[in-house]
Amino acid sequence: MPAEAGRGHFDTVRGPAVLKDVARVHTGDVVEVERADGRKAEFRVREVQQVDKKTFPTEKVYGDTARPELRVITCGGALTDGHRPDNIILYADLVA
C-alpha cells in the first residue's frame, strides 16, 4: 500500500505559509486529515526527520507500506540565497 504524501510550504516570499508551525509538531502528536466524505482520519506522528534535499529518502517517503500512513513534507534549514537546503518530513500512522 503506498503511503499518502502531502507537500506544503514553510514560508514564501509573502511570509509564513501553511506549514509555518512544523517545529511545533512532535512524535506522538495527532494530525487530522479531512476525507472527501467529510469524516476525519487521524494519524499519530511516529517520526520527524530533517534531511538535506540532496539526500532525500525517496524510498522511505514514497515506498509501499503495510498499513495506511501519512507523510508531510516541507522545507527546512536556514534560509540561504532565498532557499532552504533541507526537507522536514513527518511520518505518521493511521489510528482512527
Rank of each mutant, 00 (worst) to 15 (best):
F43H: 02
V25W: 03
I73D: 05
A23W: 00
A92Y: 04
L79Y: 11
L79W: 05
A41G: 02
D29G: 02
A41C: 04
V61P: 15
D93Y: 00
E59K: 14
A41P: 02
R46M: 01
V61W: 08
H26N: 09
V45C: 03
D52T: 08
C75P: 14
L90Q: 08
V31I: 15
G77D: 09
T65K: 05
V31A: 06
C75T: 13
E4C: 12
R35G: 07
R71M: 04
P2S: 05
L90Y: 07
A66G: 10
P2I: 12
T12F: 02
K40T: 06
Y62T: 07
R71Q: 09
P68I: 05
M1F: 06
G8A: 14
A92M: 14
T27P: 01
V61Y: 04
D86G: 13
P57F: 06
H83Q: 14
R46C: 03
F56T: 00
G77H: 09
D81I: 04
D86Q: 14
K20T: 14
A66Q: 03
R14I: 07
D64T: 03
D29M: 06
L94H: 09
R71L: 07
Y91M: 12
V22T: 01
T80S: 11
R14T: 12
A66C: 00
D81Y: 08
T80M: 15
A17N: 10
T74V: 03
Y91K: 05
A41Q: 09
T55M: 07
R14Q: 02
P16K: 13
Y62E: 09
Q50A: 03
A17D: 08
E47N: 04
T74R: 06
R44K: 04
K53T: 02
R44V: 13
V33P: 06
V18G: 06
V72C: 07
P68M: 01
T27W: 03
V13Q: 03
L70F: 07
A96S: 13
R7H: 08
P16F: 07
T80N: 06
F43Q: 01
A23Y: 04
A17F: 02
V45D: 05
V95R: 09
L70C: 03
G63S: 08
K40S: 10
L79S: 06
G38N: 11
T65P: 01
G77A: 09
T65Q: 11
A92H: 14
F56A: 05
A23R: 07
A3I: 04
R24C: 04
G82I: 14
G15A: 11
E42T: 08
G82C: 12
V51Q: 00
A78N: 10
L79V: 15
R44L: 07
T65M: 12
V48E: 00
D93M: 06
G28A: 00
Q49D: 14
A23Q: 09
V48C: 09
A36D: 13
F10G: 03
G28N: 00
G6D: 05
V95W: 07
D29V: 00
E42F: 07
P85L: 10
K60R: 13
V48I: 01
L90E: 14
R84N: 14
T55I: 08
L19N: 00
G8F: 12
L19R: 00
P85W: 05
D93N: 09
K54A: 02
V31K: 01
H9W: 08
R46D: 13
F10L: 15
